[in-house]
Write a protein that binds this DNA or RNA. Structure first.
Lengths: 220, 220
DNA sequence: GCCAATATCTACTGACGAGTAGATTGCATA
DNA sequence: TATGCAATCTACTCGTCAGTAGATATTGGC
C-alpha cells in the first residue's frame, strides 16, 4: 500500500521519501481500501447493522480515520451506490456503441447489468433502499436509478420498433428484467462454482427465449 | 374491535359482558392489528430503522403492549416472514390440485407468487435478509424459503419432462423467475393505477413468452 | 365483596453507535 | 531547526432503542 506505483527512477522507488504525487496516490489507495471495506460489510450485514467501528476494525484503523477519508456514514453509503450506478451508466454508454438490432443491443446491456450486480458496488445499489439515506441523498440516488431505467427502456423501445422484440408494456418489461437481474445481488456467492459471466449469460438467455419452447429455427 | 363477531343470541350480542370465546377473539384481533402495523412499518422503513416505540405509537399504545402480544422484536419479524412464507406455501398447495401441463401449472403458481409479493407479509419476506434475524430464526427462515424454491423447481422439472417448458438449468430458471417476481415488493405502490392482478398477469406473460417475438401460431 | 387473571401503562436500565474535540506524530520545506 | 500540514489516535458526548420492573386498572368467577 505504501510502495509507489507511479513511474519513477529505480533509486527513487527505493527511497522512503515519497514525492507529492506518490503521497496523493497513496491517499487515493487508502480511500479506496476504506470504501471497499465499507461496501463489503454493508452488503454482508446490511447498512444499519454495520457500525463504522466495525468497518474500521476490519482495516485495523480507528473510526475517525474513516471520517477523515470519506465523511459521515451517509456519505459513505452514497459514494458506494454512486459507484455502482456509475458502473451501470458506463455499461449503458458502452452499449451505445454496440451495433446490432434492438434486441442484440439490449442483450448486451443486460449482460453487463447482471455482471455489475454481482460486484461489490452493484450489489450495494440493489440492497440499499431509499429509506437508508437522508432525503437529499435519497433524491440523488433515485435520480441516478431512473437514468439507468431510462436507458433500459430506450433499448426495449428500439427493439420493438425494429421488430426484434415482441411488443408489450415497456415499463413492466424493464422492471421484470431488472428484477430478475438484480436478484443475484442477494444470492450470488463469489466463491461459488459458477462465474458471474456464466450466470449472466444464462439468465439473459432465459429472459430472451422465455419458458415456453420455441419451434426449431425454420430454414428459409 | 370490541364488538363480538362470533355467533351469539341478540341479547348477548348487545351485552357489554364478553364471553370467553369473544374475549379470545378480541385478543386475536388485537394481536393481528399489532402484527400488521409492525410489518407495514418494517416494509416502509426497513427493520433496523423501525423502533418498536414507533410501531406502538402508530396504534396509540405503548411498547410493552407489543411485547405482551408478540414478544421481542426478533419474534415479531419472524412471525411476519413466516406469515408471508405461509401464504406462498398455500399457493404451492393450491397449485398441486390444478390440472394442466407443467407450464400451465407453473404459470398458475407464478401468478399467485407474484400477488403474495405485493402483499404486506410477502413484501416483508423479500425485503428481509437473513442477517436481520438471530441465527436460530434465520435458519428457520432459510428452511422455509428453500421449501418454496423446491416447489417452484419441481414445477419447472415437470414442465420440462412433459415438453411444455424448454429444457435448461432448472436452478437458474427458478432464481430468474423468483427475482423478477420478487421485485414488485420493492416498487409496487398499492395506491398506483395497476392492480396486483394486472401486474402479476403481465409479468407471467413476459416471462413465459420471452423478449424475442414468437412466430404466429401455425395451424396444424 | 374478594381473588385471580387479563390488559395496559409509566418509568427505568443498559448497551450501542454516530459523530467530535483535541492531542500526537511524522514528514517537508523554508 | 522552526513551522506547518497530513494522518491518525484516544477519549469523550449524546441520542436512540431494546427490553424490563413493577404499578394500575378492569373484569369474571366464587
Amino acid at each position: 500500500m505504501t510502495s509507489p506505483t507511479v513511474a519513477t527512477a529505480a533509486y527513487e522507488r527505493a527511497s522512503p521519501f515519497r514525492s507529492k504525487a506518490e503521497r496523493a496516490h497513496d491517499r487515493g489507495q487508502k480511500r479506496e481500501a476504506v470504501l471497499r471495506a465499507a461496501v463489503r460489510m454493508f452488503n454482508a450485514r446490511g447498512f444499519h447493522a454495520t457500525s463504522l467501528d466495525d468497518v474500521a476494525a476490519s482495516l485495523h484503523i480507528s473510526k475517525p480515520t474513516i471520517y477523515y477519508y470519506l465523511g459521515n456514514k451517509d456519505q459513505v453509503l452514497l459514494e458506494c451506490v454512486t459507484r455502482g450506478l456509475g458502473e451501470l451508466a458506463e455499461a449503458a454508454e458502452r452499449v451505445r456503441e454496440t451495433p446490432g438490432t434492438g434486441l442484440e443491443r439490449l442483450r448486451a446491456f443486460l449482460f453487463l447489468y447482471a455482471k455489475v450486480n454481482m460486484d461489490d458496488f452493484g450489489r450495494c445499489v440493489v440492497r440499499t433502499g431509499d429509506e437508508c439515506l437522508v432525503p437529499k441523498n435519497a433524491e440523488r440516488f433515485r435520480m441516478l436509478k431512473r437514468r439507468i431505467d431510462g436507458a433500459m427502456r430506450a433499448l426495449i423501445e428500439e427493439g420493438m420498433a425494429d421488430g426484434s422484440i415482441a411488443p408489450g408494456d415497456v415499463k413492466l418489461i424493464a422492471f421484470t428484467l431488472a428484477g430478475a437481474l438484480n436478484w443475484p445481488a442477494r444470492w450470488h456467492d463469489p466463491a461459488g462454482p459458477e462465474t458471474p459471466n456464466q450466470i449472466a449469460e444464462k439468465m439473459v438467455g432465459i429472459l430472451t427465449a422465455g419458458l415456453a419452447p420455441r419451434p426449431a429455427e425454420r430454414p428459409v
